[in-house]
Amino acid sequence: MNDFFYEVLDKLNIGIVLLDEQLNVRYWNAWMINKTDITISKALGASIGELSHRLGEPKYKGLLQGVLSSGNSRFLSGAIHGDFFKVRGHNYTDKCLQNVQLERVVHDNESMLLVQVFDMTDQYGRVQHMKEFIKRLTQENDEIRQDEERARRLAYNDQLTGLPNRLFFENNVRSRLEEMLSKGVSTEHFAIGFIDLDNLKGINDQYGHRTGDFLLKEMALRLKRSLKKGDLVARLSGDEFAVLIENRDGTEDIKVTLEKLVNYFDEKVIVDKFVLDLTYSIGISCFPDNGSDLETLLDKADKALYHVKKNGKAGYAFYDENYS
């Protein structure tokens, strides 16, 4: 080959090595000299195994010979194989990656192996940094979402019973009312139930607040078990709970749910060897018959509740005009 082509090869921004059939170096371009610090005089005639820690291994030698004999080109990725030639000044605590392309070339009936070396270290480093950056962003995003979810739960849930709190209940009922009123649907009904745990103060005084809290939690469980999908239960404050019971098949449907709640009265609660009654009083108002806004419905349910309490507690009553 003439000097002009060698000059051209020296200008390339990739490593070019030519090997003869014995895998000895016939050409070593300027890029290789600069990168590896191996001079041309040291490289020329040397076995590739002396210059490359990787290509000297039997596995790779076989591969080089395979390309020479078959003429089938091979590509070796740095992502899998790492580096093939030690790079001058590279900090080997970081990965050094080189892609290598092997091709057979023939000159004057002599087969030679063209080895092209591409340094992928910087590119790999950039990709790794980008991947780490994306991973960090994803983690931060997940943490923010978890915090938001936690904050949302705290804002809308009662800590003791795990039920939705007053704010959630009121927002939910208001939005249902708005939706129904905007549709002008008069056939859809639901009931609002105001519920008081009977005699909580007495229990707290006699058995302590821990027992009272236990009863409140048990009551929350009973309420949840009695309701159907679409219904809603919340703890409003202290011993006050509220339910929204959807009316699917007329008021009978609401009565079925109320009977379920009342049937629990027969089940005693055992707390610290004490066998206690767990009863509650429920006042019911219905939308739209007793009102079409939350305040009115709650107020009328409260009046019905008062009526139950006045008449011995442990039961339920629907609002009646006479209670006003």
């Binding site: 590509f75 070796l76 990725s77 740095g78 992502a79 899998i80 990656l97 892609n99 992928m120 590119q123 790999y124 990709v127 980008m130 991947k131």
Partner: peptide, 10 residues
Amino acid sequence: ADTDFDVLKE
């Protein structure tokens, strides 16, 4: 990533 394409190439 680019390095994945290199592996696929191989």
